[in-house]
């Protein structure tokens, strides 16, 4: 018997690490990986609650989140490749010259 609060706490820790990665890393690819980590923390909680209430809808939502994450990664990595072509760098500080 595991209290559901433990799963929420684990998910909160993983989400916080993901947030920290977005805030302090300057490599655009690592920032993207941190976003994936945050999505995964949310997915873990979906599955835990799906198990607790014994309804399947949570797992269906995880399925859709995975599909959206796959689409997001494909477009995001294409954007990073395009930025690298013009800037010769994927440091997100270098992209600040895009501001108007």
């Amino acid at each position: 018997m595991i209290p559901i609060a433990y799963y929420i706490a684990l998910s909160a820790i993983l989400f916080t690490i993901g947030t920290l990665g977005v805030l302090i890393r300057r490599n655009a690819i690592v920032v993207f990986m941190s976003i994936e980590l945050m999505l995964n923390a949310a997915n873990l909680l979906f599955v835990a609650f799906s198990r607790m209430f014994e309804v399947l809808d949570g797992q269906i939502f995880v399925f859709f989140v995975m599909a959206v994450a796959a689409a997001e990664v494909a477009v995001g990595l294409a954007l990073i490749v395009a930025v690298f072509r013009s800037k010769k760098s994927i440091d997100i500080d270098d992209v600040s010259s895009m501001k108007g």
Partner: peptide, 24 residues
């Protein structure tokens, strides 16, 4: 800021009463 976020989350989970049960 990340520590504040984690602290808030832990406070809500463990100090508040969310009406949660255990997983069977």
């Amino acid at each position: 800021l990340a520590l504040v976020l984690a602290g808030e989350a832990f406070f809500v989970i463990f100090a508040g009463d969310l009406g949660l049960t255990e997983i069977a």
